[in-house]
Design a protein around this nucleic acid. Structure first.
Lengths: 222, 222, 222, 222
DNA sequence: GATGAATGAGGTTTCATTCAT
DNA sequence: GATGAATGAAACCTCATTCAT
């Protein structure tokens, strides 16, 4: 489990409420201005509290960064399963997972970038925790892929994790190259194109047959 | 053309020599510790000069970052064409370009990351220059893809630039996820796997026929 | 009204208290060593606070200079009217104003010099404010002169402001040439001599008649 | 005699030539931007030489200031006697001396201000030398006053030096308050007014009689 | 629990001065 | 004699963090 961030406040409800406040403020500011450029005072001001108060809920500025990154990854871990809820068809689950991942990233592209940019500022313990969370959210994707393979829709993978990372980079790519993508494609087109590519690379004949019978498939590929 | 960085020194040879020194030192330090955490004194020390001297060749710390990023992108623009030199077969050129791109990234993964991490610290003029250089290096890839399409080896692309970015993210991916990839694949496997995926997604029957007749194809796919 | 100097502290009482502290310390040091030679740390040390604290009450070192100069000019604007309080005779008011001006200057000669020496370091807005304050304090003098003229004691002036400046330079002169004056005259002699000169230059017969009947005139002239 | 400024160059002619170059450049820059704000490089550039060369003719930056101030005072000592050359009438000599002093000051008001502003930066030896030169140039004025007194044109003075300083401050005043005077009087009006005041304060009946018979007196008073 | 004034370490940058060429 | 690259000390200013209220 993730390393606990120190707080001097006992009331757990309050701790959670305050931290959410700080994370919201800090996300915005870190995303816009970067971690080092953002000051504690700015975070405090935006959260509507005094600078001193932050240190009742957090030991260092790096802790705030950790909480922010944690909340980003928790977002993935929350939204993807929610979108898959009740879905049973492996191919549909896969496509939905990819789409949702992209959409979550696109909702706050700066937040995703943060993980690439500022992880270096964390303690090694925190860095490890973030990596664990990333691996956990990767599993949400790799499970979908695996199901497609076992259903015979995708050809067997030499290296499932590598395959998974292609999807991850596909989703993160929207944030990583946002400055350019926003000029040349819509998010929907992007998702459709990328899924199409992936399917062409992986689908078996059985997969295509199944696919052709799927409702709403037109959304994702022709 | 890129914005000139101010220098008070006239001797162009010397300017180039010194800046190379500084860029080498700064690349290493920025890569390891990040831009904000690295101090001018550290750069100076590692470059074996006094802190003051740096400011004879550069106006601000941000200028150093710009020079570093510039040198990274120049690396792409230098190495990829060099590797393609004398090659005529479109498919071979494509594969070589991808492979080389990955290898250049892998040679200094931190340098590639820098562009994602610290561009925010540049002046808007410098930011624009870096983006231009990235677009220029993308063209090295997109030209290869385009040649394969026109040769009938790849199916036509809806959006060539998007396709190009898949390759770019594939290459950068090695740096972006180095912490994990290094544990699960070798660079060669990575390149082979990724090219294989891409070919499966894009190749026409004509492409596969041509491919089977190629020497050394085993390097890239089965 | 003068441009407000930025502060991050809300408590106005505290701001005033701290600034007085800083102004006192800085006056002394600027006066003795000059503006550029004096460091923020020295000011802080002399004021008994940390260097950083100063920047909670002031945005730049130049702001401190501005506050110092402001306080000098406020001194004139405070002391001269106070000395004139309750006095009605124009000639007596004039002599008292001159004497008081000289005395205020003599109390802190370095402070008066500062205005001549370091105004160049101010922002143009601040420079303008200081000039305005000087013109305002000049008015204290010119009003006295004007009253003497209208009472028929002084002959009419071609250029009242020029006349006023003679008095101003007379008063400032004590500071400007302190290094020499201190060796050759006492402040009282200086004031008496200078007023005497001025009266000889300006007085009408009516003025002299009135003067001879004044009590305490011996203080100012024979 | 003034303290010699160190030089490593033997050729005296060259030393003089170079120093004149430096003084000209530095006067301008010190006058416009102040001593501390002006850099050696700026002086060198304006003098058309390398920064290093200055140190062959001068030991420190302060030495340059000393040379500049010295040249200002030498200007007084040169111009006033030149203007008096061949003049015999004491009153005319006095008026001419005052007028010339004002004109020299007005030709380079910044140079005069320099002495007030930056003397603090000199070594005590140099400071003393500058003071001596000022006293010497004062004598040019006090001699004129004294002659008028001995001729019976001026009433006897209690303190001749004080009287002299009134003239000095009158002349310097044009520089000290240039920012305002330039808006309200011409230099000629200023000189006329000030001399007029002085004469009214000092002249005897014999003086006035003599004065009325002087040619060109209208320039100075009515 | 909350505030915000106060601390002080440390970073970037400037610039007088030196010295090899 | 002249150059200008190089040095390095020191200045201003910022900001994470503490602590009395």
């Amino acid at each position: 489990m993730p390393p606990k961030v120190y707080t001097s406040v006992d009331d757990e409800k309050l701790v959670e409420k305050r931290r959410e406040q700080f994370v919201a403020a800090a996300s915005e500011l870190f995303g816009r201005n970067g971690f080092h450029t953002t000051t504690i005072k700015e975070i405090a001001q935006r959260a509507g509290v005094s600078a001193g108060l932050i240190y009742a809920y957090v030991k260092t500025k790096e802790d705030i960064l950790f909480l922010v990154l944690q909340s980003v990854l928790e977002g993935y871990a929350r939204e993807i399963p929610k979108a898959l809820e009740g879905m049973t068809d492996p191919l549909q689950r896969f496509c939905t997972a990819v789409r949702t991942y992209c959409e979550v990233v696109a909702a706050k592209p700066d937040a995703t970038l943060l993980a690439y940019r500022e992880t270096k500022s964390l303690s090694s313990e925190q860095k490890a925790a973030i990596k664990d969370m990333e691996l956990a959210s990767n599993r949400l994707i790799s499970d979908c892929i695996d199901a497609c393979i076992r259903a015979g829709y995708f050809r067997p993978a030499k290296n499932l994790e590598l395959l998974t990372y292609r999807i991850v980079l596909l989703a993160h790519g929207w944030a990583l190259k946002a400055w350019r993508f926003r000029e040349i494609v819509s998010l929907d087109e992007y998702i459709a194109e990328e899924i199409d590519m992936f399917l062409h690379a992986m689908m078996t004949d059985a997969g295509w047959n199944h696919f052709r019978g799927m409702p709403g498939r037109a959304v994702n590929t022709k």
